[in-house]
């Protein structure tokens, strides 16, 4: 946990440095029409940088802080990835196949892989999901969802 704390603070420090640089390019002083565009973000970044340093000092000084806690325990890692990676896969598929097919594949995959459902159940739920989403969003709420290469063939 200490390591994770210090790493995040370091990331915040980096962000703060990046914003300070940008603020310098934009100008953070007093321009013709008042404060320049970089004015506000300059002070935000300054405060962020200072807070990160304070946090790092706090963590380093207080040895008793968060003893023995882990950011993510070794046992939990695979569980989290098992949920996260299919999500990423689903969005990648959406880029190519559109929302409906990608989401049905994702839902079916997850049900089969994590839930160990029977194939019949998987197909049924995935199909009902895609159809109900089509009806609710495309027809009822008029939100067109991304479509891929296959939908034109069935006239959508």
């Amino acid at each position: 946990m200490r390591k994770a704390e210090i790493i995040t603070s370091a990331v915040f420090l980096l962000i703060s440095a990046l914003v300070l640089y940008e603020a310098k390019l934009l100008g953070f002083g007093w321009g013709i029409e008042g404060p320049q565009p970089g004015f506000f973000i300059f002070y935000l970044a300054l405060a962020l940088g200072l807070s990160s340093v304070v946090r790092i000092v706090q963590v380093l000084r207080d040895r008793g802080l968060l003893p023995g806690t882990k950011f993510v325990s070794a046992k939990a890692w695979p569980e989290v990835l098992k949920v996260f990676l299919p999500m990423v896969g689903a969005v990648v598929l959406m880029e190519f196949l559109g929302f409906y097919i990608a989401s049905a594949l994702y839902l079916g995959f997850f049900m089969r892989w994590v839930g160990r459902f029977s194939w019949g159940m998987v197909l049924l739920v995935a199909f009902i999901f895609a159809l109900s989403h089509y009806l609710v969003f495309e027809k009822w709420f008029l939100v067109p969802l991304p479509k891929g290469l296959l939908e034109p063939y069935i006239g959508l």
Binding site: V83, P86, M87, A90, V91, M94, E95, F99, S103, Y106, L107, F110, M111, V114, G115, R116, F117, V125, F129, H133, F137, V143, P144, L145, P146
Partner: peptide
């Protein structure tokens, strides 16, 4: 409702919600 259905369902609803704001993946 089993987690294996609920979790992907929430993810997909979230995806629709994010997409619908300005229609971009």
């Amino acid at each position: 409702i089993p987690y294996a259905i609920l979790a992907p369902l929430i993810v997909l609803l979230s995806a629709v919600g994010s997409y619908a704001v300005s229609n971009r993946l």
